[in-house]
Computed example of a mutant assay.
Amino acid sequence: MLDRQSLREMARRHRQALSPSQQQQAAMQLKARFMQHPKVQDADTLALYLAMDGELSTQPCIQWCWEMGKQVCLPVLHPVHAGHLLFLAYEPDTPMQHNRFGIPEPRLDSRLVVPLDKIALIFTPLVAFDRQGNRLGMGGGFYDRTLSQWHQHQQGPYPIGLAHDCQRVEQIPAEAWDVPLPEVLTPSHHWLWQP
């Protein structure tokens, strides 16, 4: 079994190798699954992310949410609590900036902060996932910390991973702090491990 860093590097290479047309097609296939998901249809407020580094684009899903009158939130690095995320409301005209990782995020404005208990679903980026729902992120632990209450007590936003099909691996060596996902959506499949 490959170690976590080797799996991370391999999965990143696979998604970065996708052509722009493959990325565009994958994003539209994801949107079709996303729109039909019962939890998405029922949710008023959803947290998504802006893709980078070959991640599956969420832009068509975000656009659809806006058209449906759903509130979209994006993650922002917490300015005080290192390693934690805040979620800010995101609209087409939201002022954006790049965080220290080069990821675009809404400019911090306390009026736009959406508390976790107001978010129905949180769509998480990931580098790789396995057949048991284990998720491998970029290594910062931001989403594991954000989802710890859901993992321990089933409280807070319901998490769903988003990934390209090529990011599924046989097995990820899990760590104690990892939060397994109940669901992952890929362009061609809906992986479900918990009802």
Rank of each mutant, 00 (worst) to 15 (best):
K39I: 01
F87T: 09
P38M: 09
M68P: 02
H37V: 07
H84A: 06
L88H: 14
A47R: 05
I62P: 08
D53W: 03
W64P: 02
A51W: 04
V40S: 10
W64R: 15
H37W: 09
Q59N: 10
Q36N: 10
L50A: 04
E55N: 05
H78P: 07
V76L: 12
D53V: 01
G83I: 09
V80A: 07
A89H: 13
H84V: 02
D53Y: 00
W66G: 00
P79F: 07
Q59R: 06
V40L: 02
T45A: 08
A32P: 07
K70I: 08
A43K: 13
A82P: 00
S57D: 15
G83S: 13
Y90P: 04
A51I: 05
L88T: 13
E67F: 03
P75L: 08
H81L: 11
G54L: 14
T45K: 12
A47Y: 04
P38R: 03
D53A: 02
Q71I: 04
P38K: 12
P38S: 11
C61R: 05
L77M: 15
H78F: 10
W66Y: 08
Q29H: 13
C73N: 08
A43G: 11
M35Y: 02
L88D: 03
Q41C: 12
F87H: 12
W66M: 05
P38Y: 00
R33P: 01
A89G: 09
C65I: 06
V80N: 02
A82L: 14
A32Q: 14
E67C: 05
Q41R: 15
Y49S: 13
P38L: 01
Q29L: 02
Y90H: 12
W64K: 08
E55T: 04
Y49L: 06
C65K: 09
Y49T: 07
L85Q: 10
T58R: 12
A82C: 03
I62Q: 03
Q29C: 04
C65W: 14
L56A: 00
W66P: 15
Q36Y: 00
L86F: 03
M28Q: 14
G69A: 09
L86T: 10
H81M: 11
F34R: 01
D42H: 15
L56V: 00
L74H: 12
K31D: 02
V80H: 14
S57R: 12
E67G: 08
G83D: 13
I62D: 11
Q63Y: 03
A47I: 00
P75D: 06
L88F: 01
A82R: 12
A43Q: 13
G69D: 10
V72F: 08
P79S: 12
L56H: 07
Q41A: 10
Q29P: 04
D53H: 13
C61V: 09
V76P: 09
D42Q: 15
Q71T: 15
I62K: 08
P75W: 06
V80G: 09
S57F: 03
V76G: 06
L30Y: 06
M68R: 15
Y90T: 10
M52A: 15
H81I: 00
L50N: 02
P75S: 04
P38Q: 11
S57Q: 14
Q29R: 02
W66H: 05
L48E: 09
Y49D: 09
C73F: 11
P79Y: 12
K39Q: 12
K70L: 03
C73W: 09
E55R: 04
V72G: 01
L30M: 13
P60K: 13
